[in-house]
Design a protein around this nucleic acid. Structure first.
Lengths: 364, 364
DNA sequence: GGCCGGGATGCAATCGTTGTCACAGAGAGG
DNA sequence: CCTCTCTGTGACAACGATTGCATCCCGGCC
């Protein structure tokens, strides 16, 4: 019934590609791409005039301009971006670095960025580091090499931002802040979101709330941890440090750690500080046959579609993910326009969405 | 309890960015980025020699090379990609165009592509069209402008591929084939996958299977439709054309159409031809309180995480999504290496994964 | 009629890197 | 001792678009 797709080499249909005899107009006779000079020649002008006509700056008389536009169209002229970037010393390609393309949070972030950039006539060059600062640094180097006007990133290490700033590339950090140098940022009010989520559980009567959080020095997770503590303090409940589980990125033992928490921590609720940890926690709970919310409550940070689809739905702190991306792009454009404008940290408010995964603890 | 994140303008923390007094070594005195000439000067050689030393081709004596490498390192030299691309007439940036970044299928595809490209020293420039051929065409133009060695795309229209081929940019189509011109492609065996899924339902005893499919001329959906028909033919079951629902991309009435099918088509099972349609179908079923698989069976094409998480899990035809991306990248690299190599269409086998959403029809 | 002003265009330099070519020196062989 | 190689290096010309500056032409005005 099921075949493993990795085994077969795939059916391969070979067919020799043939070069059509009819030479397309879009490549000059020699097979060389059409250049501005070709267009100028076709219209009987100089390259300078052609440049002015096509870029729209400087004087060109209407008849000549029309001739040039027509020629460009007819020849299928596409300006060489490298030549332009080289001359102008800056490109229209903004870099974006995210931790993991497969994670919907980052994908949505990127799509928000792209929306705004596209509208402003910029392109987005998207690179993924795997939460590895070496790869992040490589990405940064690429952007410097391309003379990107700016880079938007979910920072992993401090070096990349430092490198970019040194080279005069504007940086906007999103989701978390890490840079030593002053730089624009767009983040969620993590502390407040986590505080609300935790307060919600406390209000339900939970006193032993397990916290699953990423083991980093990122402001995102630190903020969520702080919110967790703040809510406890507010409610006058002491935090049992044993309930706080720090889990590395690609930690292969993530589920074991969660198991251990359930075995030895006696939590009546779990707060997963991001969508990945929530997924892992959810899997563990299902595997163990633990019923939500009867036996245990679960709250997550960062809403993704499956949380509303499973039964019961997962109570979650939603971030305005796409909007974060949009704002980051706007901030970047602003700085590209005026490099000396004041640094801005834009902090968006999250929203607690109560679904069915939370209820008073079973013991009550 | 819940605040709308769209309302608040966000907390804004202003701080004037200051230029540090200590000039970093990575920018030459004038604030200009470090060029090859700067490195050469620092090492007391000519630019040509510096180029040879850093790029590794051509004669350079070991001592001189070491001096140059050290100087480059010390100055924080980053080669100007535009200048290099201009001179070499080709870049190391491969274009990728997908329909929708927010759809995990495309995100995974992209991550597969990136894996391979990164390994080969290429970058990926990811652009999204919104299944709009105008945006796709704009993306293609961008890639031509950047002198990309190739482009990998999930095609929407025929013009983009045509433009790229004319301009001598290699194209690999993924997920579906559309081009008039010969071009490499990596696709799933849609017909076989759909046939298996449909056969599974028929074997369970279903005779009225609703098909939800995208309303396009894409080979992906046409293949799935064909597989659906083939399975029926094989089983000697006539297809009621009323059971086939063609739904446009961003069709706002998708759920209504599904409702209509349920109201008037009397299906005992549903086959959703992609993950998005599956999600919509699933939502409709939940809204109507229809129990899976008791009252109705559901099969999907293209496995995504939520399908394994909901209860019951969704029976699905899984595509090797990441592998499709990887192969597409390899095909592209192969062609970049040898533009005249034979055109290849790589067809990967999908895999039917039976979960709990399928059972014999209630009437049996 | 000569001069002036400004509209419209072309010339040439430039961006930073690569690669071709010529050339300088050193060692070897006649 | 003088060529003849061969190694290693530098000068220079591209790549294609942009842009400051010079130029040219025309009408109008004194």
């Amino acid at each position: 019934m099921a075949r493993d797709p990795r085994e077969g080499p795939g059916v391969t249909v070979g067919a020799v590609s043939t070069d059509g005899a009819a030479a397309p107009a879009h490549v000059s006779p020699g097979g060389r791409p059409v250049t501005l000079a070709d267009v100028a020649r076709a219209a009987g002008t100089s390259a300078s005039t052609a440049s002015r006509a096509l870029s729209g700056r400087g004087y060109v008389s209407p008849p000549v301009r029309d001739r040039l536009l027509a020629a460009a169209e007819r020849l299928g002229y596409v300006p060489n971006a490298s030549a332009r970037t080289l001359k102008q010393r800056t490109s229209r390609v903004v870099g974006v670095v995210v931790s993991d393309l497969g994670n919907q949070f980052y994908a949505l972030l990127a799509s928000g960025v792209e929306q705004v950039l596209r509208g402003a006539g910029y392109q987005m060059l998207l690179l993924g580091d795997n939460s590895e600062s070496a790869e992040e640094l490589a990405a940064a180097r690429t952007f410097v090499a391309m003379r990107a006007p700016g880079v938007i990133m979910t920072p992993v290490g401090r070096e990349a931002t430092a490198l970019l700033s040194r080279q005069g590339v504007a940086v906007v950090e999103v989701d978390r802040r890490l840079a030593d140098v002053p730089c624009d940022a767009v983040v969620t009010d993590n502390e407040r979101g986590a505080e609300e989520a935790t307060a919600h559980l406390l209000a339900e009567g939970h006193r032993r709330i397990g916290l699953l959080v990423v083991d980093t020095d990122w402001t995102s997770d630190l903020g969520r941890l702080q919110g967790y503590r703040a809510a406890h303090a507010e409610a006058g409940v002491a935090v049992d440090e044993q309930l706080i589980v720090r889990i590395g990125f690609h930690a292969p033992d993530a589920e074991e750690r969660i198991d251990a928490l359930l075995d030895h921590g006696a939590p009546t609720a779990l707060f997963a500080a991001n969508n990945l940890l929530a997924e892992q926690a959810w899997n563990v709970l299902r595997r163990r046959g633990i019923e939500l919310p009867g036996e245990l409550s679960l709250v997550a940070f960062d809403d993704v579609p499956w949380m509303a689809m499973v039964e019961p739905g997962i109570t979650v702190v939603r971030q305005p993910t796409v909007e974060i991306g949009r704002r980051a792009a706007r901030l970047l454009l602003r700085r590209a326009d005026d490099p000396s404008c004041p640094t801005v940290v834009d902090c968006l408010e999250p929203m607690l969405i109560v679904r069915g995964s939370t209820a008073p603890p079973a013991s009550l």
